[in-house]
Design a binder for these strands. Sequence first.
DNA 1: TCCTCTCCCACTTTTGAATAGG
DNA 2: ACCTATTCAAAAGTGGGAGAGG
Length: 546
Amino acid sequence: MVMYLPEERPVLDLPYQMNYLANNYGYYPQDCKEPIFRTQHGLNSRMNSPEAELTSLPVHVSLQDRELWDKFSSIGTEMLITKSGRRMFPSCKVTVTGLNPKVKYMVIMDMVPFDNHKYKWNKDRWEVNGSADPHLPNRFFIHPDSPAPGEKWMQYPISFHKLKLTNNTLNSNGLVVLHSMHKYQPRLHIVQSPDPCNPHNAGGYLRFTFPEAAFIAVTAYQNQEITKLKIDNNPFAKGFRDNGLNRKRFREKESQETQDSIGQAKNEHAVRQPQKGEEVDVTVSSSVDCSRTLNSSEVVSSVTPNPFISAFINPSTAGGPSPHQTHTILSLNNRHLNSPRETRPSSLHSLCAALPVAQSSCIQSSTGNTNLSRLPSQISSPLNPQQHHHHSSPASQTPDRSIIQLQPYFQTPPHPSRQCPEMELPLPLPPKVSRMQLPESALRNLEMTDYVNLRPLTDILNRIHFRALASGPSGKVLQNPPQPEQYLRGSDRELHPQIYPAVQEYIDQQFTLNSMLSSQTEHRSQMDYVSARPLTEYCCEQQTGK
DNA sequence: TCCTCTCCCACTTTTGAATAGG
DNA sequence: ACCTATTCAAAAGTGGGAGAGG
């Protein structure tokens, strides 16, 4: 289990966590956590600001299934990408602690380049094969339960098993687009809603990279050991176990080869002795050579400021060394690698200011009131990820969107080992997210970030709402739910003015929410939401004085 | 020729509708 | 009429392999 701590946190402040981790296979790549703060002026500052509640919390993130990840990473993790999208295996599953139980957060994941190289598989290992292709604009996978109170995120491990990877840049189905033969690492974003009752508390957001979950995107598996590991651990691939002996095609082929070999043996009048390598191929175990697994002492820690964070905070300095440059823990082959090409500030910076305001209480809670008591019970990490209960449905207990701001605390239910949320709770009905709460500068940044294959932010926001609509009021999937692309496609909106029912419906439901915002923000957001104009257009009008 | 990618196949798991029984 | 358990078919997810294309 790996836990990530804020890099600002002095080491002396860690005894509790260190004691906890001492028994739990942890280390502290402290610079993996990158707190981002917002100020009232929309600028970012990276300091221990009292306004930044999220970043002042002792937020810990732990990657689950660490043993499995270690097995894969020791060989060189590969993730299949297909045109229609392929799930990750192992999937990213994290436990989060230290959030404010009352405050709503969004949890988002994306993939960032691990380095600026392209790779090729040469016989039995990966080799650098030139420079990487230009990084595709980030596609964020917003966890379906977003936004949800902190206590819900902390209640169960947060699973991103539904995240799909693709190499199809034209897809608009919420897939994460990657380049084949490029190396990526998952990055988690925890975005806090601003507090409507305390305009000085602009919230903030944290992001965590998982270098031990780095992988090379491939369209076909290159390393047979990876294939073997996947087959042995992924239930969906059970049909390929026992060397695929139970597969029809294999049986046919095996039968043919057997006959051929019999004939050949008869011809040669000799029995061929199996060679070393061939024997391994037949009897290869799922266990891997863990001697290459790096231990905590190999985690490179640097005291130099992370330029990437600075670039994030100050877009003008975008570009520069990679965030993981200071905490590279992957194979030695990668040690020399550097600098993912992230030439633009992450649009999550924008999104952090874009959250719907959905605090459960206007009373500022104590940041020390974090739910850490559950930690020991979540330490175990079964090898088979399918045995995990996926984090699900925290928002399902949210009584009603329209009273999100008023919902009280509720008690933490029994531990997931005794209660499977996915089986016992209905699917969540995430509150709809509108662009109305978003500062236009943030939105502009976010939309501009997707400069290659522009995907308006409204697509993302309405996708969340679409999920709710598709689920129907009772959580059941509707027969012909509207496609998310139907909403708020800026260029299509005049051609299809009828495609905004979700938006229109949401206006009324969000009235209470909006009333809690400043009048200026309220006016702008409702105007923008009603007209469903691309924010860039709106901003242009603002600048021209319309 | 080699490398990468796409498509289809057979297989397993998951999901949800239909049905039966209390 | 309602609830629960069971059954079953469809959908989704998996790697392998053949073949296309650069």
